[in-house]
């Protein structure tokens, strides 16, 4: 159990908390990569999911596309893109976006598509334009499911950003890769514990957001599995 003690010492040592390779700096990098990834993935997947869900056209293509993307190993993409494009931020962000798109896309699409046709019919017959049907009825009703998908994507991205350290970038995975190189198991342990804590905290925040923006009239929909 001295390993645990060593890991704890690494995490509590003031030296670990300062400087360009200190925990705050690594945490910032980790969250930064994740946020950048999510912004791009959201910009791609949400409009596509909304459009396909609303028109109910091309649903099969979207489900198939999401499934195919899901089967792609992120580590493989990361290494492939790095070899093809060289070092830098682009290869890992591209690989991570491909990881984040499927859950957002299928959450948005299936959330919108699952809105009862009778409800959409009622909205149209009250005189809502297509845009109003989408923004005032379909999105609010599908919001729990859409946010469920986003929450899932965010967790996967936060967890996977750890491996971008493998291609010499920062983030909390830095300690894992560096520790591995010098057989410093305590530092590896400290690294993965930090990532786990970050994931748990992010999940709690997102769960809170999900609860806050979900209308109480929508009860239990959209919980994660």
């Amino acid at each position: 159990m001295s390993l645990v003690a060593d890991a704890a010492q690494f995490l509590t040592d003031p030296a670990s908390w300062s400087g360009p390779s200190g925990i705050p700096q690594r945490l910032l990098e980790h969250v930064g990569y994740s946020a950048l990834t999510m912004v791009i993935a959201l910009a791609v997947a949400v409009p596509l999911g909304l459009w396909v869900g609303h028109t109910r056209r091309g649903g099969g293509v979207v489900v198939g596309l999401a499934g195919a993307l899901r089967a792609l190993p992120t580590l493989g993409l990361l290494t492939l893109f790095t070899l093809l494009m060289g070092l830098g931020l682009l290869p890992p962000i591209l690989a991570l976006v491909l990881l984040a798109v499927p859950p957002i896309l299928s959450g948005t699409y299936s959330g919108i598509a699952a809105v009862s046709p009778a409800l959409v019919d009622a909205a149209r017959s009250m005189g809502m334009t297509e845009r109003q049907v989408l923004t005032r009825v379909e999105i609010p009703v599908a919001l729990p499911v859409i946010l469920g998908g986003i929450r899932n994507a965010a967790l996967q991205v936060l967890a996977t950003v750890t491996i971008v350290a493998y291609i010499n970038l920062g983030g909390l995975g830095r300690y894992l890769i560096d520790g591995l190189a010098v057989r410093d198991y305590a530092r590896m342990l400290g690294s993965v514990v930090l990532v786990a804590v970050l994931a748990l905290a992010a999940d709690a925040v997102l769960a809170l957001v999900q609860r806050l923006v979900t209308s109480p009239g929508l009860a239990t929909a959209g919980d994660r599995p």
């Binding site: 992120t74 990881l99 499927p102 299928s106 469920g148 899932n152 994507a153 959209g222 599995p225």
Partner: peptide, 8 residues
Amino acid sequence: AAVESGGA
């Protein structure tokens, strides 16, 4: 849908 968006 929640199950399905679980993903990789």
